Structures are given as C-alpha cells and as structure tokens.
Amino acid sequence: MRLLKIGIASFLLMLGVSCNSARSIVGNGKVDSKLTAKQLIKENGKREAKFKTLQAKVKIDIIDGLKASGHTLNLRMEKDKTIWLSATLGLARVMITPDRVQFYDKINDQYFDGDYKLLSDLLGVELNFKKVQSLLIGEPLFDLKKDTYTISNSDVSYILEPKDQNELLELFLLFSPSHFKMDSQQLMQPLKKRFLQIDYTGYQEVKDEVLPQNIKIIAVEDSEELNVLLEYKSVSINEEVRFPFKIPSGFEEIIL
C-alpha cells in the first residue's frame, strides 16, 4: 500500500486545469430519463476540451490517514504534448510527455525518470498521456466509442457502465446533466480490494471551455485510504508557455 500511495501522490501532483476570467457553473440541469447511452456519449464528445495551452495555480491537499499536507503549485500544459508542474522556488518539478514521466526533488536531492508502467501497475489501469490528461480536464479515462455501454440515472447524474463489466476492473462513469462533463469516475478491483474514485465537485466556464474547478480523489486498498483534494485558480489559456526542466547533477535516482 505504501508504494501505491507514493505512486498515486506523485501522479496527482501532475494535475491542474482552469482559466483567467473563470465563471463557476451551478449544476441545475435536470436528468432526462429518455436520454440514450449513445446520445449521452455524443453530448459528452461535444464538450471535449479544445484549448491549446493553459497555465494555473493548483492548491493540493493530501490526507493520508491522520496525516495531512498542503501544497500550492504552478502548472503549465500544452494539450496532447506536455504537462509541467513546479513547486515554489523550483524546489520540485514534474514533467510528463506522451512517452515519459520525470520529476526531481531538490529538498532530498532525488529524481525519477521513467515511463507509465509503474503508475499503471499501481492503479490497475493502463495509463498513458491521454488518460492522465483526460483525468485532469474532466473527461473519461476510456474512449467511450470503443465499447458498448448501458445507461441509468440517479437524481442528479447520468450513469454509464460497460454492457459487459470486467470482473477484474469494474467501471462506473457519472455525467452531469448540466454540461455532460464528468461528475465521477469510479474504478473497482474487487479481487485486489482496491477502489479509485475521482469526483469532479465543481466546474467553471473559461472562454467557452467547461473545465474542472475542484477534484476529489479517493484511493483505497484494503483498509487504508488516501484522499487528494485539488483546487484550480488564477489560470490562463492559449498563451505562450515554457517548460524549463533539467534534472540537477548529482541527484540520486528514485527506484520505486
């Protein structure tokens, strides 16, 4: 479980999304019981993010049992290409590209330089850049056009699940009737007693984009639980961004 928490925490430090003159969205849409799964997937596809770049400040709170810590980080993203995050004074930095995950920590003089295999093994989901990016911007981790889904609904959300659930990995996707973006993504691995839930508890409209404002991530294995809360603010999109990143010499490689 300790390795799982390290992996998830490192993974979550890569998150962020928002914009300058953002306007919070009030979820007042009503569920239409006649909406089909095909129609829901089509409506969700229309809301796919179209920005080219973004910058933001991301407030992250990590709660691990009785321990809690908070961080404020600077995030920059070039859609489909790079996710970059830096702590105050550059004491720690993360850079993710489609084929690489890197970060370094100046406090402990350590660095990591690898691929997505570790995070995929830890979370029980095959990760790649696209899935990480989708998680950050309130889009499904999986391509909804590549499977057949059934639809149901609660009082406040549409619920999609694969027509043939995999007993090794059960998936439930909840969508908002207000804007058809994600309310929640829930992945369960009953045999491994693992559960991952990603809740999008607030959205904002940024230059015609609907993007997450608050995300809550819950990771459970056996009786241990890790919670991560993210808040995105002070953001701009479609401006020029740079991604300075160089692992300092003499640092020790992190082997997880």
Rank of each mutant, 00 (worst) to 15 (best):
F175Y: 14
V206L: 08
S178K: 15
L187V: 02
F195M: 04
L169F: 02
H179K: 11
L173D: 07
L196I: 04
Y203W: 14
E209D: 07
E170P: 00
P190G: 13
L187Q: 11
D199Y: 13
K207F: 10
Q185G: 02
G202R: 14
L174M: 04
P212G: 01
D208C: 03
F175M: 03
D183T: 07
M182I: 00
P212T: 01
M182K: 01
S184F: 05
M188P: 02
F180D: 11
S178L: 10
V210C: 06
Q185R: 04
F180N: 14
V206M: 08
K163L: 13
V210P: 01
L196C: 06
Q189A: 01
Q189M: 03
E209G: 05
E209M: 06
D164G: 08
F180M: 14
L187N: 10
V206K: 09
R194K: 09
L168H: 02
P212M: 02
E209P: 05
P190M: 14
Q165C: 10
F175A: 00
K181E: 10
P177R: 07
F172P: 08
E170A: 01
K181F: 12
L173K: 07
L174N: 01
V210T: 13
M182W: 07
D208G: 02
H179D: 14
S178W: 06
E161W: 11
H179T: 09
Q185S: 07
F195C: 02
T201L: 09
E167F: 00
K192Q: 12
Q186S: 06
K181C: 10
L169C: 05
Q197K: 15
P190K: 10
F195L: 06
L191P: 02
K207P: 04
Q204C: 10
L211C: 14
E161A: 14
N166Q: 08
D183N: 15
K207S: 13
P212S: 01
K207W: 11
S184M: 08
L196V: 02
D208P: 02
Y200W: 13
T201E: 09
E205F: 13
S176I: 10
F172E: 15
Q186W: 12
F175E: 01
L211V: 13
Y200I: 08
